[in-house]
Design a protein around this nucleic acid. Structure first.
Length: 477
RNA sequence: GCGGUCAUAGCUCAAUGGUAGAGCACCGGGUUGUGGUCCCGGCUACACGGGUUCGAUCCCCGUUGAUCGCCCCA
């Protein structure tokens, strides 16, 4: 506790330092750092540090879309009983090597990692499902009523080449359910996400596939590879590489020759074990029932090692643009994950991750126009005495719940009215020297320009009444 | 990691081998304390480095960044 009291005291000193910085940047640099160390000169002509590649600021203009998404997520999570959980950004490297897979691109070349001062190999998380499983085990959640369902939201990091909707720091929303292998769980997650996106205005299609169990998948891979080996002279260079590294990816190739070869390739669905096949059929039945549009995509393979059985991706429909066709989300079942991390044997799980910037991008492209929040009242002031009184009046308004804005930093009334106009407020309150002395406030109706002088002590009630009347007339507000 | 395209003010875009303009935005003004129109003024840019040239924003090379595609993924 004593620490908490001390902290603000220190902070008070800070603004003074900031001012010094503005006046004498060179001086301060020398003082603040080690005097032995020469000041590193900034590159010529570049006064401002630049954004790191693949990183971005999410500006106020865009926040509305993020808010819409977060709000919808929260309410959807509530109705489907997913509880909020947050994980640290830094995790042990081991966590992802064991789960995502050492051979995957994510781990092989996209990890932001370093050794910390204690010698631990740490990484900035490239995804969150592994953390979810880790948390499930760490906190003994196997003792809770199953399934245990969480949702989370936060940044992930992958050192990848930036592209539209792809950043090195990207935000995901995830839903995970541990402890049930019922196909209804898979279906419910898909239905929920589909509806979540629908409520914010995005029409999607789910691409569905099942990759069976480890064993059945392995058998299929072998079969597929041997099929392709016989056609080796007909496929492209990339595919020759895929054949060695990741045979399932062969089915993704768009090169003409390869497409022809693909037509006769063995299909994974034919290689599924009975149980997986059943599981998959049940899910599809549920989706049919729920009216979720989906497409079977036998070529869909997810890049993370922990998946088994169900895999799916969420795509926006009606993407006429030339943009890279990016899935806005993906997920699947990961029945071996918990066990892989040392949890109880056979603990099943299923989840989904949504790419937030991709959703925001889609919202923007589909011209989903978020309605800006309306402000009802603008508070204008003139002169110091008005400011002093105004601060209090403004606070009264805030507490009364009336949406109000101010510009105490501005001097002229003209400027303040301009601002009020831009905000589209219904009324502007004007408080000047004269009004302070008289104990009054001017209320200006912004539509008509009519003004009225009212008793300052009753201003809140008066405005409440006026707003009620004004809004009653204009149903749009 | 590989390939294509691109890089002029905060934004959208001009012009030019002799160092740059507009619109919007922003700030100020059009006499004392009144917005939505109008008028006036101000601010801010040739991504960075090197080469060719008497001289480069413009031509060439490199770097960085953006964008599109491959790979992969959210």
């Amino acid at each position: 506790m004593p620490n908490k009291i001390k902290a603000p005291v220190k902070k008070i000193e800070k603004p003074i330092k900031v001012e010094e910085k503005i006046e004498e940047p060179e001086e301060l640099k020398k003082k603040s750092s080690d005097p032995e160390q020469p000041v590193v000169p900034l590159p010529k002509g570049r006064k401002t540090p630049e954004l790191l590649r693949g990183f971005r600021d999410i500006l106020p203009d865009e926040q509305i879309y993020w808010e819409i998404l977060r709000e919808a997520t929260k309410s959807m999570a509530e109705t489907y009983s997913f509880d909020r959980i947050d994980f640290p950004i830094l995790e042990k490297e081991e966590l992802f090597i064991r789960t995502v897979g050492k051979q995957t691109d994510i781990v092989e070349k996209e990890i932001y990692g370093f050794e910390d001062k204690g010698g631990d190999k740490v990484v900035m998380r490239p995804e969150m499902t592994a953390s979810a499983a880790r948390a499930y085990i760490n906190h003994g959640m196997l003792n809770l009523p199953q399934p245990v369902k969480f949702f989370y939201e936060g940044p992930n990091f992958r050192y990848d080449r930036p592209q539209a909707g792809r950043y090195r720091q990207f935000y995901q929303i995830g839903f995970e359910a541990f402890g049930s292998s019922e196909p209804i769980i898979d279906a419910q997650i898909i239905v929920m996400v589909y509806n979540l996106l629908k409520t914010i205005g995005l029409e999607t299609n789910i691409r569905m596939n099942s990759i069976g169990t480890q064993d059945s998948r392995q058998a299929y891979k072998t079969e597929l590879a041997s099929y392709y080996r016989t056609k080796k002279n007909q496929i492209c260079e990339d595919c020759k590489r895929r054949l060695l590294k990741n045979p399932m990816r062969l089915l993704d190739c768009k090169v003409e020759g390869c497409v022809a070869v693909k037509a006769d390739a063995p299909q994974i669905l034919d290689w599924l074990d009975e149980e997986s096949k059943n599981h998959f059929m049940r899910i599809l039945e549920f989706l049919d029932e729920a009216g979720v549009p989906y497409t079977l995509d036998p070529h869909l393979v997810r890049g993370l090692d922990y998946y088994n059985r169900t895999v799916f991706e969420i795509w926006t429909v009606n993407d006429e643009g030339e943009r890279a066709q990016n899935a806005i989300g993906g997920g699947g079942r990961y029945d071996g994950l918990v066990e892989l991390l040392g949890g109880r044997e056979g603990t099943p799980g299923c989840g989904v991750a949504l790419g937030m910037e991709r959703i925001v991008l889609a919202l923007k492209e589909l011209k989903v126009q978020p309605t800006a929040k309306k402000v009802d009242v603008f508070f204008a002031q003139l002169g110091d005495s008005a400011r002093r009184v105004g601060l209090k009046v403004f606070e009264d308004f805030r507490q009364s719940g009336i949406s109000v804005r101010e510009a105490f930093g501005k001097g002229s009334l003209k400027t303040q009215l301009e601002l009020a106009n831009k905000l589209g407020v219904l009324f502007t309150l004007i408080l000047g020297q004269k009004e302070v002395l008289d104990g009054t406030i001017i209320v200006r109706d912004m539509e008509s320009g009519a003004q009225e002088i009212v008793d300052a002590s009753k201003i809140i009630q008066i405005m409440k009444k006026k707003l009620e009347i004004a809004k009653g007339l204009d149903t749009k507000r």
